[in-house]
Write a protein that binds this DNA or RNA. Structure first.
Length: 279
DNA sequence: AAGTCTGTTAGGAT
DNA sequence: TATCCTAACAGACT
């Protein structure tokens, strides 16, 4: 589930838990997140290092350490951070037979920060801040939350784009941070059909869309900050307006049923009445 | 209970 | 260059 709001929530959490602390001990089991890097060398790299900052662009995190170094984290499809000050809890985490932490940092104040990622689509890299920023931040488009997106801004970003606006918005090099859920929600709020060609949006469409993006990001982020947990945990209520609501009546017009189609291989939800078909 | 679905994205084919 | 599709994985759900 990690899209911009979840990653921003993770960033803020790391700021509260870890910034200003040093790593007393690190556990780095072998996992796909490391790529070619060796677990032992990352463990050595982390040990004793002081955490100074936590930055985000799009869905990428850079945890800043002393001497202008950083740990790059991408949460992939199922990544999340957890924190405890209870040694019994961190010990239980490390003993999990499957799905245990891909990274666990015991901090010098007794806290433990762990990174979970059952599906292992995430990624970890350590190195010089500047190198990691160049690799992972620079290719991204403007951050959908930090750069106040305006209609004018969005129009410029979508100029000459023939493919569906939904697909274009999920292209991280165009706008960074939006994923399948946030895009579905924003297009529904702005009453724009997901298949409208990007360049076909009018000035009014673009300005509604810009506001809608901010609104849906703000709403999801507020939910996360309030609950402190993760949305769509098993058994929890679907907090979204259209995402995952195929067949239900639209919560705005109350007339049409939400439809689900597939666009660029991804599930796409919209209200056929509020979001009229492009012609 | 086998088969289908899933929040991401790199990389390859067209 | 632009666009589309698949693979990578584990677990929840039907």
């Amino acid at each position: 589930m990690p899209e911009l709001p979840e990653v921003e929530h993770a960033r803020r959490s790391l700021e509260r838990w870890a910034v200003g602390r040093a790593v007393a001990a690190a556990a780095v089991p072998p996992s796909r997140l490391l790529g070619a890097a060796s677990p032992a060398s990352l463990r050595r790299w982390l040990t004793g290092r002081r955490i100074e900052s936590a930055a985000r662009r799009g869905k990428h995190l850079l945890v800043g350490f002393e001497q202008a170094t950083a740990l790059h984290v991408h949460l992939g499809m199922s990544g999340c951070f957890a924190y405890t000050r209870d040694e019994a809890v961190s010990a239980r985490w490390s003993r999990l037979p499957i799905g245990g932490p891909r990274l666990s940092l015991a901090l010098d104040d007794g806290g433990t920060v762990a990174l979970f990622d059952p599906r292992m689509f995430g990624r970890l890299d350590a190195g010089a801040w500047a190198d990691l920023a160049a690799r992972f931040f620079d290719p991204l488009g403007p951050d959908a939350w930090l750069e106040p997106l305006t209609g004018r801004h969005l129009t410029a970003l979508l100029r000459g784009v023939g493919r569906p606006v939904k697909v274009a918005l999920m292209d991280q090099s165009r706008v960074a941070g939006l994923g399948n859920i946030q895009v579905a929600e924003a297009l529904w709020l702005a009453r724009i059909h997901p298949e409208r060609p990007g360049a076909a949006l009018t000035r009014a469409d673009a300005s509604r869309l810009a506001r809608a993006i901010r609104a849906t990001l703000a709403s999801t982020l507020a939910d996360l900050e309030a609950g402190g947990g993760y949305l769509q945990d098993a058994g929890s209520e679907n907090p979204f307006s259209v995402y995952g609501r195929e067949g239900e009546r639209c919560r705005r017009c109350r007339l049409a049923a939400i439809r689900r189609t597939v666009l660029a291989g991804r599930a796409t939800y919209f209200c056929p009445r509020c979001q009229p078909v492009p012609r």
